[in-house]
Design a protein around this nucleic acid. Sequence first.
RNA 1: GCCCCGGUAGCUCAGUUGGAUAGAGCAGCGGACUUCUAAUCCGCAGGUCAAAGGUUCGAAUCCUUUCCGGGGUGCCA
Length: 647
Amino acid sequence: MGRHRRLSTLGSSRRVEGPPPGILHPMNATPETPVDPLGRIEAAAAAAVDAVGGEHAAGVDAGLKPGAKPEFGDFQLNAAMPLGKKSGRKPRELAEELAAALASPEGGVADLIEKPEIAGPGFINLTLRPEALATALEAMDDEALGVAVDTRPHGVTIDVCGVNVAKQMHVGHLRSTVIGDTVARLFERTGRDVHRQNHLGDWGLPIAMTLHSLISRDVDLAALELDTLNVAYRDAQLEAKGDPRGLAAVETNHCGPHRRFELEAQQESASEAQAAAREALVRLQSGDPEMVTAWKRLIEVTMDEVYKATSLLNTRINAESERGESSFRDELAEVVDAFVREGLAVEDDGALVVRFPDRERPMLIRKRDGGFLYATTDLAALRYRVQDLDSDEVVYVVDARQRDHFRDVFDACRMIGWATLPDGVNASLKHLGFGTVLGADKKPLKTRSGANFKLMDLLQAAIDRGRTAVRARSEDPNAPTHAMSAEELDAIGRAVGIAAIKYADLSTDTGRDYVFDLDRMVTFEGDTGPYLQYAHARLNSMIEKAGDDFHADAALLVREPEERRLTLLLLRYADAVRDACDSLEPARLCRYLHSLATEFNTFYSACPVLKAEDAAVRSSRLRLASIVRRVLADGLDCLGIEAPRRM
RNA sequence: GCCCCGGUAGCUCAGUUGGAUAGAGCAGCGGACUUCUAAUCCGCAGGUCAAAGGUUCGAAUCCUUUCCGGGGUGCCA
């Protein structure tokens, strides 16, 4: 079956290696035209570290970081301390030399920065000249907003969604769907070719049992709905399960004959159900037309509802992403043979296992009865993803509790060579494990009766809250939404509610469990999706109002502290996207967007834009605002969150 | 038993190869609206970074030990 079984766990962490998080990238700079001031300063800093440090400069980070506080300047260079440690010289002296090198005419950046300040044990604080800030902002104000295109020739595969046929989606699927789609968008934003793969649980004994149960009861498949299908699935499971542990307890606890009889009867009917299910599976596997038709209908009924949810969630997960376990069923025997042939799989107690050099626990790939396992299917799927889909990166967005499982699968895949592409590139295989969604009681989120919440019910609740809030606001005659139709308001309300849910899921460390508190999410204040949407809507209406006063190429004047801070933050957008993508942590982009929205709101209350007296200031601020708007919209799009024009 | 993950403000969480006085949001208190959209902004208060020891110019971050919590662990997925 699919990737989700039961809930309840604590999280993880999956820091993924990537390039060092240099804060500044040479954005539009080319060797011939080093126009971008930040690129020039970074290069100058690296040169200064080399010159001052000499042989000790190797391995020392010459990267600039944003100033820890506004009074520490725009950027800081911390290289003097590690350099001091390596060379045995005093960090402050080295800092003096580095600062002098940067400020000298030979440093080449004296026109861009104020005199460097040295503080503490050897921090070098740099402050940009206003014109340099304006030029830097100018340089990123293009279509790509400074985000460089990744030119690697291979694609990326993201394992997302992971639903089970015949079962309702629940909050676990929400996380895989939302996080997975966002990771996919981040890769797409950096220019990669992305395959979303939905590894449906659409094969195996449980499905056969459900089919058997439906057919034997003559259920009208044409009229089948997911709710009744889900009940049939559960009943079939229960029927086949019996209670062997109960029977064992009777033995040890010496229960009375009545109880014993009951359990034995249950056991017997369970074995009968299991036998019937096995027979059904054989019929399905051998292509029995009645079974196959029913099976296809089961998938259809399930996926109709899944795509309602993925579409409501504004994700790009659709029928094209569909590649269930069943599509690998004919490769499993061959996968096992390959491992045996390579000497990587050995028989043990009748089963076939793959052993690893660095751990005790082996991975089973074939059961004693000849059946295949979850791991076998995953190996086949992974080979397909790397080799057939041509991916140099495969990311599994799956429950954190399956960490050990994926470690095994990945290692086995590397051992047999399937993770290596024909051109010799080794694909990186990553498990982005997410934590469990908890209720207010800190236990896995369940209804009072102990069942999982239906995902659709949760989404609907959030949408209702969004619509209520949007309607209430539109009552105000001064609200920009006042004259809008009920349909338009509903669409905005839906976007707001979904944004609240998605942002709550994306903005926290994915590996950790998180408490699903609808009330907190739909407060729409503070660090929420709607807060970002609101900032965007305000920007949008301001620029609309400006009309002909807005010029996309207006001269930029960066003077006020709020203008400076906003500009500095805008300049970091490309890095925020790159960093979120490399680390597989959408939360980093969320953090960036939230600080950008906050910084804009601060700017907005401190600096008049439309009301600015001076026409040059007005048009400069309008252009600044329009860049903020585009960055917010672009960032929200990476998160798969809609940015309404009004709200 | 073995393996993995976590413990930071009342609550939910950040904290980027070790950097300056550990930061946000919520809740609390005090301010700012005949709004360039107050779903906003400004300020105040709030901490033994689970505990102890170690490494060094510098530790929430790295090492060791301990405590607490969660998860995984051969024929389910």
